[in-house]
Every structure is written in structure tokens, then in C-alpha cells.
């Protein structure tokens, strides 16, 4: 089947990756939140010397900052998820999906061989990739699927 085959063949680099947004470990959570809000993203990479040190997501904000009543002045390094699971651009899409569902992650940093981050792969991008395989099935739907015209349009 086409999709099952493509999932194994297509590499992560074929997907349009979101450009990674960075913060440095010593920046404050307030700065990170402002950047996330401005860029409308749910996750930031925490990078030191171009190497991925951690990832900071909406979930981290909720769990490690807001739930504990921490002030937004603390450093990102104190509330990030350190050493996140990453994918390489040459890995297959199937392998990326597996990593996501095993760990329950919504975002995976994409890093090259030198360990430099080149993008973020989100669950929604993958969903879009899957939907692209079935354009007629998914996109050619009426606003309400239960409404069927009783007569041809214009009649």
C-alpha cells in the first residue's frame, strides 16, 4: 500500500519542518514565553553553542512553572526537559512517528550529524503529511457530511 510504503521510504527531511526557535539556558521563562507567544509556537529549543541542551514546551510551562507557582523570572534551564529525544533528517517518517507515540511527545527536534538543530517536527506536520495522501477523501467533504443535496445544484 502506498502510504505504508511511503512512511518507510520518505525521510524526515522531506517534510516541511518548522524553523527551530531558540533560547539560551540562562534566559528567563518570561523571555521564552514572550517568544513563544510572538512566534505562535508551542515549543522552543534550548541551545548552548548550537547544541541542543533541552526543549521547553507548553507542557513544561504548565507542569514545572505554573503548577508549582514559580515566578517567570527563573531560568529556562531550571524547567526545560533536558536531553530530549531527537530525530535525524535521514530517518524515516515511520521512525519519527514511533518515537513520538512511544514517548508521548508532540514535538521532536531534528538535528544533523554534528548535533546542530535544523528544525522541529510536530505531530500536526505529520498529520498534514498523512492527510496529503488522501486529498479526495479528506478535503472533498461538505461542511456537514450528513446533508446530501436532494436535487442537482441549480435545479
Amino acid at each position: 500500500m502506498e502510504l505504508a510504503k511511503n512512511l518507510m521510504i520518505d525521510s524526515v527531511s522531506r517534510l516541511p519542518l518548522g524553523a527551530p526557535r531558540y533560547v539560551a539556558p540562562h534566559q528567563s521563562v518570561a523571555e521564552a514565553v514572550a517568544l513563544m507567544r510572538q512566534e505562535r509556537v508551542g515549543c522552543l529549543l534550548v541551545c548552548q553553542d548550537e547544541q541542543v541542551a533541552g526543549i521547553f514546551t507548553e507542557r513544561d510551562l504548565l507542569r514545572r512553572v505554573m503548577a508549582k507557582g514559580q515566578p517567570l523570572t527563573i531560568n529556562v534551564s531550571e524547567c526545560m526537559t533536558p536531553s530530549p529525544v531527537v530525530v535525524h533528517p535521514k530517518e524515516s517518517v515511520a521512525s519519527a512517528i514511533r518515537k513520538m507515540s512511544e514517548g508521548g511527545y508532540r514535538h521532536l527536534p531534528v538535528v544533523d550529524e554534528a548535533g546542530k538543530a535544523i528544525g522541529i517536527l510536530s505531530a500536526r506536520r505529520i498529520m498534514h503529511y498523512l492527510v496529503e495522501h488522501f486529498p479526495a477523501t479528506v478535503y472533498n467533504l461538505p461542511p456537514d457530511p450528513k446533508v446530501v443535496p436532494q436535487s442537482p445544484e441549480g435545479a
Binding site: M1, L3, A4, L7, A94, I97, R98, M100, S101, G104, R106, A123, R124, I126, M127, L130
Partner: peptide, 16 residues
């Protein structure tokens, strides 16, 4: 959720 859907589709791909 998006993840439920990804899960469902990839499971179907594996089975076939």
C-alpha cells in the same frame, strides 16, 4: 486528539 489519529493511521499501516 491529533495523537489518537496518528496512532490509528499508523496502526492500520502496520497491520496491512
Amino acid at each position: 486528539s491529533v495523537r489518537d489519529m496518528l496512532h490509528h493511521i499508523t496502526r492500520l499501516c502496520k497491520e496491512s
